[in-house]
């Protein structure tokens, strides 16, 4: 888990550097500071369980085992990217790992997760769905529609709210009548738990409880992870809405060194071993960036590929039987 925390951090630091060099375009939303949530949560469930996330999605992809090279290449908009340069930073996904992607319309994936959980229940598959979103998403109607249906049909889905105190630049006090998002789940009779999103073990424990609840057929569960993002909302964010001192206060609770210390204190590994992990990950990330830079650009002639799983071309000569010939019509035309 320590390696995964470092992996996310270093991946994103390199991504931020590449963004500053204009090698990555558009939006880049960094997860730095919140890594313990993805790491704790995903490690607490099975590999076959399903993940859906918001657009701040690099961390989940990496923890699920997606190749950092392919993730970086996607950010660079290259052919070897996880989604062949069609999605970019906000839309990483790998179906084979049951990582069903990052969604960039806030809250839109909340009912999608519920629907997927229904498919699992319907097919009697023993898999649960993890649906991650931020505190900002709870202001959207779609959040309530998704929770309502999940509760109504008793579906095996865990809603994980990463409460990082800001919906983009709006403070919790400005965007929500309650400061604890789990209160919103109570209206749907959904059991909930709050955990320390800066502490990987606290998240791990909460998700273990939630997954057990869902898998035993007791319906959905709501987890609220209290966390903080150290960087701006995206690379374009000047962060005028918060004090630097507030960020500093949270940085003291950085999930990486604190979990590293815990590992050393509990004899899980030595500080030399942690340093070695840091070094190895840094090497991997340099490789990932080099890979992304060398990966070919997608072919513009192929830009229309994948619009449809089954493209239909009415222009093709082999098209449509039934067209062309006049036939009698028997509908009464009395409309």
């Amino acid at each position: 888990m320590y390696r995964q925390l470092v992996l996310i951090r270093r991946f994103e630091e390199h991504a931020a550097e590449a963004y500053a060099q204009a090698k990555i375009g558009g939006f880049l939303h960094l997860y730095i500071g919140e890594e313990a949530v993805a790491v704790g949560a995903i490690n607490a469930v099975r590999e076959t369980d399903h993940l859906l996330t918001h657009y701040r999605d690099h961390g989940y992809a990496l923890v699920r085992g997606c190749d950092p090279k392919a993730c970086m290449a996607e950010l660079f908009g290259r052919e070897d990217g996880l989604c062949h340069g069609r999605g970019g930073s906000m839309h990483l996904a790998e179906a084979a790992r049951h990582f069903w992607g990052g969604y960039a319309i806030v809250g839109s994936h909340i009912p999608i997760g519920a629907g997927m959980a229904y498919a699992m229940q319907y097919q009697e598959r023993d898999e649960v769905v993890l649906d991650f979103f931020g505190d900002g998403a709870t202001g959207n109607g779609i959040f309530h529609e998704g929770l309502s249906m999940a509760a109504l049909w008793n579906l095996p889905v865990i809603f994980i709210c990463e409460n990082n105190l800001y919906g983009m630049g709006a403070t919790l006090a400005e965007e929500s009548p309650v400061s604890e998002m789990r209160i919103k789940a109570e209206g749907y009779t959904m059991p909930s738990i709050q955990c320390d999103g800066m502490d990987v073990l606290s998240v791990y424990e909460a998700l273990g409880k939630a997954a057990e609840h869902c898998r035993s057929g007791k319906g959905p569960y709501f987890v609220e992870a209290m966390t903080y993002r150290f960087r701006g909302h995206s690379m374009a964010d000047p962060e005028l809405y918060r004090d630097k001192s507030e960020v500093q206060r949270w940085r003291v609770r950085d999930p990486i060194p604190s979990f590293g210390d815990w590992c050393v204190e509990h004899g899980v590994c030595s500080s030399q071993e942690l340093a070695q992990i840091n070094e190895e990950v840094e090497g991997e990330m340099l490789e990932a960036v080099a890979f992304a830079e060398q990966s070919p650009w997608p072919d513009p002639a192929e830009v229309g590929r994948w619009i449809y799983a089954k493209p239909i071309d009415p222009e093709s000569p082999a098209r449509s039987e039934g067209a062309g010939a006049a036939v009698p019509l028997t509908s009464d035309a009395g409309v």
Binding site: H50, L52, W100, S108, H109, I110, P111, I112, G113, A114, G115, M116, A117, Y118, A119, M120, Y122, Q123, G141, I142, E145, G146, S148, M149, L152
Partner: peptide, 19 residues
């Protein structure tokens, strides 16, 4: 429920899950 966006979102997820 009367929740058109939720209905379609749910349907998208159910489709991704194999239905």
């Amino acid at each position: 429920p009367i929740a058109e966006a939720g209905i379609v979102g749910f349907a998208v997820g159910a489709a991704m899950g194999g239905l």
